[in-house]
Design a protein around this nucleic acid. Structure first.
Lengths: 335, 335
DNA sequence: CCCTCATTTGCACCCGCGTTCATAAAATCC
DNA sequence: GGATTTTATGAACGCGGGTGCAAATGAGGG
């Protein structure tokens, strides 16, 4: 019943040629007589032959597979990122081996090891903490590693959006709105971009002579944002909130409204990422947009890069984040 | 610079054993003397050896890769589905080769062919139109095909949520709310589940003596839902809307409110899927829940199944969809 | 002390395909 | 038309690793 796949040998037998000729028929730019080629192709079609990529990649010692490790894939931002990336890979004739790091903060070495076993062409790390040692090992083996939105001490391709500049715009905007009692909301997960955004916000606020309330609990989710609002608005005097993620901001918004606080009149809220929901008319969240398209393009470009001159230096691209004005921050006050 | 990977041969040389012994050391249940095993393992670690899955799978004539074809991956429902599935696969020691069918209605044969070349263990089809011919070919080659939320004429594993029963609950609920002028909203994409939900709704409404307005345009998105509301509420008398997808329903809700219509007092709205956003407090959308967890479990079970007795008949599981009462449908009227 | 049996190990071959290399056939040149 | 170049084809080898088989080693029993 469960017959095995058709091999080139069987095609060769049917077409009455050698297996080498079959191989050549399916190899670009090999020399095969037209009539023979046709005979082989017919035989292949009749038998339902398709090359075994496993074997093909084995002798070539490289595959067109790209390993992608990510986490929180149901989160709007990550989902869009993966959607774009996987589509781009497919368009470029590469395969996308998805490794879902269930837990962001865990060490993702085992995942990388797993993907290495497939002699992948490149590894894209969208999340998780990759220890330098294993990245070095990848690079030593000629596997390009592309790290997204994360600083690494290792010399490898790095693509990130300009969190610092983005946060600066957010902070300035809140200050322009006349906020006196800022707060910053994040989850308890200590991912790099979260920490970077939070710390930069704190730094800027201190420089402006303000002392933000700090809230950091739970997982990265809408519900955590709600919780933050209930905590902060009940116990603190807060008139301007920076949520390190839109998801948090949306939860914050809803809970604030449920508590009867008016946004932006009583409290301004600003997020980060610009996920689609931020633009839904129930929210109209003012936020900092991550340049997702450019991010994806940069990743794809970095992967393609290794085809050409081998040992050029690693890419390091910082893409601009921009303030998207919507309706959750008070209009600038003319001081 | 770009050195190749370490092979078993090199490990053998270092450990002063034969390559077979190295192979056996990494093979479950093979007979290797304890001291030799340790020597080999040390050598392997020192050299950074890892087995080449390509080669391993080649001789085994099967991989632990599962091909997953999906589309609209940034959509909340699909994203969650993929998240769960990829996590489950990883936990079970399988790899997830993601094929992103950019366009749902296109023929996905080329995608399947591509994934077949990797001698995958199974193929999960979450979207797209798989022609029966190629599925037959998969099955003939011993590759299990699992189709999710889609009826097929081919005899293969099928997992679907009970759209019909779900829609019945939605329709009954709207009727209970006293709706006289129902409408059904879908996108113009002619995916099976959309069509099934719409047609079933129409049928039930006709049976109840009502004649629903039909709206079907655009892509599957929040914005399309907004558009539907603007169209329907402006030109028709509508007091009860079934959106075949939560995403549509949320857009509909927002646009309806923006037009000043009160929900559920003036118009009741009910969705399908129960995506996380449906439970956000700005919406509180009454909807039909697809049993996502059970769906994923069933898919994973179907994949695992092929380990055991080979030629048992294909699975066909229909999982119950349940009405989730929230706040967008009027309370039942006591007729 | 010799024989038997269990365990360990190396050899050789196979998986399916790409790729020299040599050879046969065809085409070109003078 | 013979010499030379080009082209087409098949045999053989390698990619990295699994595995059947037989030799080698060691332990146990009579």
């Amino acid at each position: 019943m469960t017959k095995s796949f058709v091999t080139a040998k069987e095609v060769a037998a049917l077409a009455k040629v050698s297996r080498s000729t079959v191989s050549r028929t399916f190899t670009e730019g090999a020399s095969v007589a037209p009539d023979v080629r046709q005979r082989v192709e017919e035989a292949a079609k009749a038998l339902g032959y398709r090359v075994n990529k496993l074997a093909q990649n084995l002798s070539a010692d490289q595959s067109q597979i790209v390993g992608v490790v990510g986490s929180n894939l149901s989160t709007p931002f990550a989902a869009r990122q993966l959607d774009q990336l996987s589509r781009g890979l497919l368009q470029r004739g590469m395969q996308c081996l998805l490794l879902n790091a269930a837990d962001a903060q865990h060490d993702i070495s085992p995942l990388i090891e797993q993907v290495l076993e497939f002699r992948v062409r490149a590894i894209v790390i969208m999340s998780g903490a990759p220890p330098g040692a294993i990245i070095d090992e990848c690079l030593a083996n000629g596997v390009r590693v592309i790290v997204v939105n994360r600083q690494t001490d290792v010399e490898t391709d790095t693509i990130l959006s300009d969190d610092v500049a983005g946060v600066r715009q957010a902070a300035e905007r809140l200050i322009m709105a006349g906020c006196r009692f800022p707060a910053v909301v994040s989850s308890s997960a200590r991912t790099q971009s979260q920490a970077r955004r939070r710390n930069e916000f704190l730094k800027l606020m201190f420089e402006a002579g303000l002392e933000p309330a700090i809230w950091a609990q739970g997982v990265m989710s809408y519900e955590t944002g709600q919780l933050a609002a209930r905590d902060l608005l009940a116990t603190e005097t807060v008139d301007g909130v920076f949520c390190v993620t839109d998801l948090l901001a949306l939860g914050f918004l809803d809970a604030a409204r449920d508590m009867g606080r008016r946004v932006p009149e009583e409290v301004s809220v600003i997020g980060f990422d610009d996920i689609p929901q931020a633009n839904w008319s129930a929210y109209q969240l003012t936020t900092i947009r991550q340049p997702l398209d450019e991010l994806t393009d940069a990743v794809l470009a970095a992967i393609d890069r290794d085809v050409r001159g081998g040992n050029s230096r690693p890419i390091r691209r910082i893409l601009p984040a921009t303030l998207i004005e919507r309706a959750t921050v008070r209009a600038p006050t003319t001081v």
